[in-house]
Nucleic acid binder design. Structure first.
Lengths: 240, 240
DNA sequence: CGCACAGTTGACGCACATCAACCTGGGTGG
DNA sequence: CCACCCAGGTTGATGTGCGTCAACTGTGCG
């Protein structure tokens, strides 16, 4: 595991190979030219209601899908890791019913034309690969609903840490028990449906239990089995 | 709006025409022979971890997707209405990471062979139709996450009622302000991530505010605009 | 060196959970 | 046809996990 950011800018080469290989079935994309650009923390990759042009692939950093309620309440509905498609199904048709924002400074690949809808005849392999990703996204969404509805704050937090480790390990960005996580407690709170104050207290608990340490953006699972047990984590939903 | 059930058995013809027409793009399915069978309340249409054979279409009644945690906690991750595919993406490959259960007695259509994966070359229209449904399912899941994480109990309940009205109206099973809803408070609780006692109190509040009545399985929205406002309901996520 | 943002902590309040008792209506069987 | 039965609904009393408010502390960056 290496830091993506040395100093201010992500000038150290992001681990592209692993990420690109994560785009397995979407390999055709790699052939296509896609333009990389940097997005600052807090910026939107896709605004709510926008009709996205093409596809956005996250290459380095973390983005999220989120929705706002009129009075300022925010719910993050997905946290994306390198190799993920930010606006997976938004590109399929119509305007997005969610926004995509950057949780850290990140590097995003942009494919201007939409290769799914534009290609005629439809690229079958691409479509199949897309279906697999849609399916995985939905499985993750289901698991988040379980956390939001039926897990306690500390269980939800532990579960999120376990899920992210698995997903990051899939693209070579996590070891067996650690990874880089530079997301603020405010953002974690909006993902878990609680307040940042309570995220802080739950983190403290996990630390006191000797399950994790989280310092300077590096998460270490000191006792991963115990953490997974506390979280009621069953990774089968993440398998292809 | 007519009752599906007269007496004990759903012998009155379910509103098949509307439901079938809801299968728009999946019209090819209608050509195929699919076997109808009845499922009693509480029975599973698909068990957790099972590899589903073919597809299940809900024709009458309500089913749900749900997940159990080891200690008995349950979270319903989707409520399905006639015209919906119960195991939409489960059929695409592999074992289901959720179960599908009947919330009321229902009528389910079963297509034994999987027309998506088996057909070679892939049926493009069918696939496109399936993508649209996947996309809608995911939009609904996102909105549920917003409810679970950021709406109060009464707002979530109101929102669910609004969502179901829209979805049922799409298949001709709801008027502008009423529909049949024979789901128990226990099931509503597991969908909303709260307890049935609290569902009861939230319902009482909505009744006292003059927004709804719910008697003998008939939900009437006495003041739909006010209900939608309370729920922070924006139906755009349900549009195709 | 100091600003600004993120994290930390304590006191207190509320939404929702828990427990337990009681009600209600429609289905069933004698 | 009535009397029972029991799942589901209703209500009150009390407990608690998380929210709110507010002050303070670290830490990275200009």
């Amino acid at each position: 595991m290496q830091s993506i950011y040395k100093g201010k800018l992500p000038l150290s080469p992001p681990p592209k190979l692993a990420v690109i290989s994560a785009l397995d079935g979407i390999g055709t994309l790699v052939g296509a030219k896609f333009r990389e650009h940097q997005v600052d923390k807090g910026q939107d990759v896709l605004r709510f209601g926008e009709v996205p042009e093409g596809l956005h692939v996250l290459i380095a950093g973390h983005t999220c899908r989120y929705r706002m309620l009129g009075d300022g309440r925010r719910q993050i509905t997905a946290i994306l890791v390198p190799g993920d498609l930010c606006d997976l199904e938004a590109g399929l048709r119509g305007r997005a019913d969610y926004a995509v924002g950057a949780l850290t400074r990140c590097l995003v690949g942009h494919l201007p034309a939409d290769p799914i809808c534009d290609a005629k005849p439809l690229n079958q392999e691409l479509l199949a690969a897309l279906l697999i990703r849609l399916r995985r996204d939905e499985a993750i969404a289901r698991e988040w609903m379980v956390s939001l509805g039926r897990r306690s704050a500390i269980e939800s937090l532990a579960h999120l840490f376990c899920e992210l480790r698995t997903r990051l390990a899939d693209v070579g960005l996590a070891t067996e028990d650690s990874y880089e996580l530079r997301i603020t407690q405010d953002d974690l709170a909006d993902a878990l449906g609680i307040t940042s104050v309570h995220v802080n207290r739950a983190l403290k608990q996990l630390r006191e239990y000797g399950l994790i340490t989280l310092k300077r953006g590096i998460l270490v699972m000191s006792d991963r089995p115990a953490l997974e047990k506390l979280a009621l984590f069953d990774p089968s939903y993440l398998q292809p």
